[in-house]
Simulated scan of single mutants.
Amino acid sequence: MASPQETVSLDTLSAQQLSAVKKQLDEEVEALSVSYGQLAAAQGKFKECLRVVSTPPSSSSSPDGGKKEVLVPLTNSLYVKGRLADQDKVIVDVGTGFYVEKNTKSAAEFYEGKVRELEANIKELEAIVQNKSNSLRVVEGVLRQKVLAQGQGQAAAPAQA
């Protein structure tokens, strides 16, 4: 069971303890920043899917009967040309290896929902990163004051001896 976080005055911590807190906050901000980048990349992919699904089909007066030409991925780096047999039906990856056939309107709604969901997650994560960054700045400021105070105390001690 998780216990509530205790509030500790930074002034009561030693420079070594403050350094440990600073290191932990640095690691947390770094991990959150990586997560932010991954969420933004996922959102970009969903926006691209939405753009592709929302693109109107090519003219049916074309020589290929209006079948939209696409690149079909065989691997991450190997594609072959293909044509859509039915431009109103697409296969959508709904996650964890499951694919569902949807019409383009339903697929667009699915991707719009994903984009909105990721936008909310990104905003929430931005707030957390901002909060952690502010905490990090406060810890750095207190640590700097402690180090300066220790330096001044050590400089004054030899002069008195």
Rank of each mutant, 00 (worst) to 15 (best):
85 A>V: 13
117 E>V: 04
1 M>A: 15
146 K>I: 04
69 E>G: 09
21 V>R: 03
30 E>F: 12
33 S>T: 12
35 S>T: 13
25 L>S: 05
12 T>D: 07
141 G>R: 06
79 Y>Q: 15
95 G>Q: 01
153 G>Y: 12
84 L>Q: 09
18 L>T: 05
51 R>D: 09
51 R>Q: 08
8 V>K: 04
74 L>V: 15
128 I>Y: 05
10 L>R: 05
25 L>Q: 06
96 T>F: 13
39 L>I: 05
79 Y>K: 15
114 K>Q: 15
89 K>T: 15
20 A>Y: 09
51 R>G: 04
112 E>Y: 02
24 Q>K: 11
27 E>I: 06
32 L>V: 00
9 S>M: 10
53 V>A: 15
161 A>Q: 15
140 E>M: 00
114 K>M: 00
151 G>R: 10
144 R>M: 09
24 Q>P: 00
49 C>L: 14
144 R>S: 14
77 S>Y: 10
116 R>W: 00
140 E>L: 15
76 N>M: 05
57 P>C: 08
70 V>K: 02
5 Q>D: 12
96 T>K: 09
51 R>C: 01
118 L>D: 03
19 S>K: 07
126 E>F: 04
67 K>S: 07
15 A>F: 08
73 P>Q: 05
66 G>Y: 01
85 A>T: 11
117 E>C: 10
156 A>H: 11
48 E>W: 07
98 F>Y: 04
157 A>V: 08
150 Q>H: 09
154 Q>L: 01
56 P>G: 12
136 L>V: 10
92 V>H: 01
6 E>G: 09
135 S>Q: 15
133 S>E: 13
106 S>E: 15
82 G>W: 06
97 G>T: 10
105 K>H: 12
149 A>P: 03
61 S>E: 15
137 R>S: 10
159 A>R: 11
136 L>K: 08
93 D>M: 07
4 P>S: 10
136 L>S: 03
159 A>W: 05
30 E>P: 07
46 F>A: 14
14 S>R: 03
35 S>F: 08
159 A>E: 00
33 S>L: 03
1 M>V: 08
8 V>Y: 06
112 E>W: 01
129 V>F: 04
16 Q>C: 04
